Amino acid sequence: MEIARTKCSLGYGKPPWIFKGRALYQLHLVKSEIARAFIPKEFRLVEAFGYTLGGFFLASYEDSPAGVFDELVVIAGIVWNPPTSCAWAARVLVNSGDACDHGRKDVGLPSQVAKFSKKITATPRQRKSKFNGFLDTIGFGTAKFEYEGLHGCSRN
């Protein structure tokens, strides 16, 4: 089996690329008819009872081939990509021109540059439940992410 060579636009080298940072996934059911509007016809949607699995992925990378950046990915649904399945990105927002270029040219993502702002605020101490402790452990217990504006990719 021959491995296809990837043409890399900004000197990132061949995959796999390593991204280090923090991320949060939020998954939920999406009606298949809505998800299909974002997925090319040649891909088979993984679905059950008229639904697929979609959601979003929010990440803050402290080290990556494209440098430091934040990313929000809207997942339309899951598609069958033999021999496995994978999430289909309907929208990808990043706050870096280099990350936008890397996503578009090297990975084929529908990346767009956006402005992100983060606020870390003190919250009153609450009784810890298993869920709150988990959020604190992964760094999202008190973090608040906000999204401002949407702009096309600044470089073509």
Rank of each mutant, 00 (worst) to 15 (best):
V46N: 03
A35K: 06
T121L: 14
V30S: 04
L72H: 10
D136N: 14
Q112A: 12
V92E: 03
R36P: 02
N156M: 10
M1A: 11
G21D: 03
K14H: 14
T142V: 14
W80M: 10
A114K: 04
L10Q: 13
G54S: 05
L58N: 00
L135Y: 11
A23H: 14
Y61F: 02
E33A: 11
L45T: 06
A23W: 12
I78Q: 00
I34W: 10
F43R: 08
K105Q: 08
V107D: 04
R36L: 04
E62S: 12
L109K: 12
A37E: 15
L109Q: 13
G133N: 15
S9L: 03
R22V: 11
K119N: 07
S129V: 06
K7N: 08
I75S: 05
V68M: 08
N95L: 00
L93T: 00
V79T: 12
Y12L: 11
P82M: 09
A90Y: 04
Y147C: 09
L58P: 01
V94P: 01
A37P: 02
L150F: 14
P16N: 04
S85V: 00
E2F: 09
R44C: 11
T137L: 15
R125K: 14
G54M: 06
A143L: 15
G97Y: 03
G103M: 00
S154C: 05
F134Q: 02
R127I: 12
P15H: 06
K115F: 10
E2G: 08
Y12I: 09
K130Y: 08
D63L: 12
A35M: 07
R44L: 13
W17D: 04
S64A: 04
E47Q: 08
S111M: 06
K41V: 08
A4C: 09
V107S: 06
C153M: 03
T121F: 09
E146A: 06
K119F: 11
A59R: 02
E42A: 05
N156H: 09
G108L: 07
I120C: 07
G133M: 15
I120L: 13
R44K: 15
A59T: 06
P110G: 05
F49E: 15
K119H: 09
S85Y: 13
S154I: 01
G108P: 02
A99R: 00
C86T: 15
P40V: 02
L27F: 14
N156S: 07
V107C: 06
G21E: 01
K41N: 12
R22Y: 06
K130P: 01
T52Q: 06
V74N: 07
F56E: 04
E71R: 04
R127C: 08
K20M: 04
T6I: 12
Y61H: 00
R22P: 01
K31H: 09
E71P: 01
Y12R: 11
E148T: 14
I120F: 08
V73R: 00
I39L: 00
R91S: 07
A4I: 08
S129L: 13
E146I: 03
A37F: 07
G21K: 02
S96I: 00
G149Y: 11
A66C: 01
K144L: 07
N132Y: 15
T121P: 02
S32T: 14
T123W: 10
K7L: 13
M1C: 05
K41W: 04
Y25G: 10
S9D: 08
L10R: 01
A48F: 09
P124R: 13
S111A: 15
I138T: 12
N156A: 15
A99P: 03
K7T: 07
K20A: 08
I39K: 01
K128T: 13
K119W: 03
G152F: 05
